[in-house]
Structures are given as C-alpha cells and as structure tokens.
Design a protein around this nucleic acid. Structure first.
Lengths: 343, 343
DNA sequence: CTGTTAGCGCTTTCAC
DNA sequence: GTGAAAGCGCTAACAG
C-alpha cells in the first residue's frame, strides 16, 4: 500500500475516465446510474484511497452540515461536570448518534455564535445562556432553534413545570406555620457571588427556571401561613459544592436557625446536608431539607434527599427529536416527587 | 430595523462600491488597508447586517476549521455521564475555549471518522476507541492526533503510569500473604458482559489502561506472596453501577469470600462498598477495598475510599495544549495515592 | 444514463 | 493602496 495521493472528486473522476457527476452520483444518488457501474466506481475509489466527497465542500454546496450546536447556559468547562446537564446531553447524544448528527459543544458565555453559525444546521440551547448578548442573538438566528428550560419567541422549547414542582416539594417540607424557612436559590441574581437576596422585587421577573421555582416556593410559603424573613433567601451563582457550602454554612449559622431548607438544586441540598451533619445537626429531626433535580447521589445520601425528579435524559431526547422534526411548539415534560428521609 | 438581507462578501462589496478583496482584507488582514478605510467598511457592514465572511466557505478555502474532534472511547451517551471523562473534558474545554477552538464530540463506537474528518483540524482521542476499525483509521489520519491513555505510533500522547499506581494501591490493600484477593477489572475483555476472567493469558497484551493496571495488581500480589485463585478476576464492561453491582454481588458471595478487593475504577469500588454495607459486611474490618481514579464521591463515602487520584482535568488541559502546540512526544502525568478508611 | 458547467462564499496571488 | 480572476471541492441543473 503506497502513500496514497490526495484525491478529489475531480481527480478521481479523471483517473477513472468518467465525469465528475458520475462519481458524485455514485456516492450520493444511486438511482442516477446503473447498479453495476456504481459498485464498480465505488470499488475503484476504495482501491485508490478515495473515501468519498469532501464533507466541507459538500456542506458548503448543500448548505447542510449534519451538525448541531449544543449551546450550554454556561462555559462548557462548567456544564460538563454538572450531573443534570450531563444527563441531558446524554439524551441528546443518544438521539443524534442514531441519526448520524454531530454534536458541537458551545459555551453560553461566548459573545456570539458567529464562529459556528456557518457550520451547523441549528441550535439546541440548554438553559438561557449566561451571556445576554448570546441570548439576544439567538432570537434573530435564521436557523432551527430548540430552547430548553427557557423560551424564545417562536422557537420550539421543552421544559418542565418548575413552579408546580417547587410548590409541591415545598409543601412536603413545610409542616407548620411556625416553621423557619430558608431558600437556597440558584442563579437568582446575575452575579458570581454567593450572597443573600434582600429584595425579591429587584430581581427581573423573567421566565428563568430559578424564578419559576422561587415562585413555587413562595406560593407554598404563603399557602401554609409561614412568614418568610427578608434575609432568608440566598443566591448561589452556580450549582457546585464550593459555592453551595458557603451559603450552607451561612444559612445554618443564621439566627434564628431555619428548620426548613428549600434548595433549588440537589447539589446545593447535598452540600447543606453534609455541612449540617458535620455540625451535628440531625436530619430530619432538627432541620428538613428538600432539593430539586433528582440526581443519583441524592438517592444514595443518608437520609435520602426528598426532591423533584426531572427526567433530564428524556428532556435531552425530546429536544433532539423536536430539532429533527423541526417542531415549533412548546413541550412540557412531567416530573416526579422523590421522597426520601430528609423531610 | 428591517428584515436584513442575506449578505455575502461579494454582495456587500458591491453595495459598498469596493472590491471583494477589500472587504475580505478589512476583516482578515488589517495591514492590507488604511485603518480609516477599514473601520469605515467594518462599520458599514455592521450597519447593514453583515457579520463577516462565511466560516464554512472560509474554512474550505483555508483548509482550517478551528474545530477539534474529541473522540471518546465509547458512545457520547455513555461518556458524558462518566465523572472521570467529564473532568477530562472539562480540562480540554477550558483550554480550547480560551483559544476559541470549537469542540466536536465524537463517538468511539462509530465506524469511521469520515463524517467529520473534513470538518476538523485534528483529533483528541480519549482512550482507545471501542470500535477497532476506528482505532485503525486513526493511525492513518493525515491530521493532528493526540491520544490519551493509549498510544498510536508517532502521535502525541498523554497518560499516567497506571501500572505503578495500581501496584502502589494494591500494596496498601494487601496486608498479609494469607489475604484472599479479588480483582474487579474494567474492560479486560472485549465484551459487553459482566463475567469472570479465567484465563489471563487469553487476553491480548496491549497497552490499554486495564491491562497496565492489572499488571500492577499482579505484581503486587506476587510481591506480597499472595496466591490468586484462577476464578478471582472479574470483567466489568463499563464503569457504571449497574454492571458493577452485579460483579460486586458475585464477588462478595463467592467462596471463600475475598477480604481484599482491587477495583479498577472508583465507581466499581463504590458499588462494591454499597453492596457490602447492605449485606452488613464491615469495611475495613471484614473486607478492604481500593479503587482507581479519585472521583469526588469516593472521598465523601463512609469510610472514604482509598484510591489512586489522577489529575483528569489537568490531563485534559495537557492534551489540548499538546494539540495546539503540535507536540509529538509522550507525556506521563503524575498521580497521587488518596488514603481513606476503606483499607 | 453521462458529461458540461455554473455556482456555494470565500481567499489570495498578481497586476495596476 | 485596490480590483480582477483563479480556484478550494463539490452538487445539481441541463443538455445530450
């Protein structure tokens, strides 16, 4: 096997003594030439080391790329280690792999989709991109867009009823009007800081997941007759244990110590539980904790975390399927309460 | 703001009354025209809604894509939820994001890289692809390739000394020549089954991670004077708890029950520990367990798992940096013993 | 069924 | 400084 030359459609056609179109047809349109001729040509190409039309040129010509960008809400770096995002990606990947569609990962903190827009057939956006410019740009994109956990005018979307889920799980945690409730919120504020949220009304009322969940909690609080102090809401910038444990410590040491903790993600809830256990605080005797998401580790915790299980993988599959089907509606997926010993 | 037309370099040049080259230069080669002219043109383009040269066409022309394929050892679906792979991806993503290089995920169980070869500047391969055809193809690729945890003749590579790590951790676990040792191996056999490995010599001796680790274990076993029964090695096809718990049950119930378990991944070790705890077997009194990888959950387990911590994220960064630098050497990264209460 | 040809949208010599 | 023109490698319409 000699150093094979760099073949192009043109050069291979000349070599075989046929026209370009014939070679192109042999690869792309079986019906345009005799079966015999086709297999002959394909065999000859393989023999010579030509593995088919250059995909980049083909795509440029056709305007089709068989590649979809998965726009994450945050940097790839961060998202890839988030268990909920991972499961979502798993679902997307499973469907796309089957359809031979390539997956391009794209950061939600990038300034613009320009650098990839010309390479992809469209976008699946997992969560509102942290960078607002990106979010704005997405609205104007002339390609297929499926959004997940947020909405853009007219594009297809998939999400769950966060408000209802939050409401239900909060109702489970709050047992009496005298409970002291704390809310450990995720990305309530557009900041990278762990801090308290003193003025709810200063937050933008948008369609983001965080605000939907918050609304659910607040409704439950109000319905149970609990009074929520104005320093009982924390903002955690990212769902990871470093940020979460800071808020957890602060909340556990605040006076009076809350006995009910509504956490906007399981990772946050687990951090809180670990911190509490370390301080000798008993769960659920001294404090009750609920989370959101339903990650594996939550079920393995002792006591198991009571949480809202969302079908992240199915969400991913759904998003991918909607992309492929060029759907334009909004899909609302179900969730399940997963009841553990934490409340 | 009216429905902006679909501009191309050509059409925008005509509109502005300048030549194509001038517009192209304005975007790509600032030195080829006066600063004044350049900013004028750029401003005009922005005004009209032309955001720069089409990337697909640009790439076709230049033969450069600013995109790298990350070829995983298994399906994307599976890899994305593996904590070790995730951390690796995190490292890769961090470096590439900084260099504005896009990341295309590619499945190691695909038949060929043909579908993406023409879209990328090269490949980073995380682990030997499960599909042998793919692995073969990679060897012949005419583009940059960096391999991780395995080698291909002449390409750059990064890995750790698996054999040494396995040896050290096994030495920690084995306390006496009378210990009964079991090995829970990961991907020792090319099968999707959880089963025992009766004939070590039937396995291919290759450079794969699994075999290096096995060699380390066997050396430690031999050095400590332990006798390893010929039915004491299990093969687990994937590092996930479903497969692992099957092997764990089998091993725990085998007679005589082993008191030392050498596990080729933390996920396997944790499954084993959970199974043992459930059966009322005490760790480390009744059995001793060691893992490999150093995932977060291992440190949080009670007792904490003794394991070989590898710097997966750094591995990812290193691989990305080597790709960018077009390195051609083999890099060996360090590891650390992480000592917990499991042995 | 086969061959010619005009682009897809761009970059880059090369002459002006 | 600028503009004309030749491709990058391919597809699809059209004529034969």
């Amino acid at each position: 096997m000699s150093e094979s030359k760099h073949w192009t459609l043109k050069s291979i056609a000349k070599q075989l003594g046929v026209s370009n179109a014939t070679v192109s047809n042999a690869f792309n349109r079986p019906d345009q030439l005799s079966e015999k001729r086709r297999t002959e040509i394909l065999a000859a190409c393989k023999e010579l080391g030509y593995f088919g039309p250059n995909k980049a040129a083909q795509s440029l010509r056709r305007g089709k790329f068989d590649t979809v960008a998965l726009v994450l809400s945050d940097s790839i770096e961060y998202m890839v280690s988030d268990p909920v995002a991972s499961r979502f990606m798993k679902g997307v990947a499973a469907v796309f792999e089957q359809h031979k569609i390539n997956l391009l990962l794209f950061s939600g903190s990038a300034d613009s989709v320009n650098s990839i827009n010309d390479f992809v057939d469209g976008f699946i956006c997992y969560g509102r991109p942290r960078n607002r410019l990106l979010a704005e740009q997405l609205k104007k994109i002339r390609k297929k867009v499926v959004t997940v956990d947020f909405n853009i005018h007219r594009s297809a979307s998939v999400s769950i009823d966060n408000k209802a889920g939050a409401y239900e799980v909060a109702k489970l945690a709050i047992k009496s009007p005298n409970d002291h409730v704390a809310i450990l919120g995720l990305r309530l504020l557009d900041t990278h800081l762990t801090c308290r949220v003193y003025d709810i009304h200063s937050m933008e009322i948008d369609t983001s997941v965080a605000h939907q969940r918050l609304q659910g909690y607040l409704d439950a609080i109000s319905d149970t007759g609990v009074k929520l102090g104005d320093d009982r809401i924390w903002n955690i910038p990212e769902s990871n244990s470093d940020f979460a444990s800071i808020a957890a410590k602060e909340a556990l040491n605040s006076v009076p110590r809350p006995n009910v903790f509504l956490c906007m993600s399981d990772l946050i809830a687990l951090s809180l539980m670990r911190e509490a256990i370390q301080q000798g605080i008993r769960i659920p005797e001294d404090i009750r904790v609920v989370g959101f998401d339903g990650i594996d580790e939550a079920a393995r915790m002792l006591p198991a975390l009571t949480t809202v299980y969302q079908h992240s993988e199915q969400k991913g599959r759904k998003a991918a399927e909607m992309f492929i089907a060029d759907a334009h509606h909004a899909e609302l997926l179900g969730y399940e309460l997963s009841i553990g010993g934490s409340c």
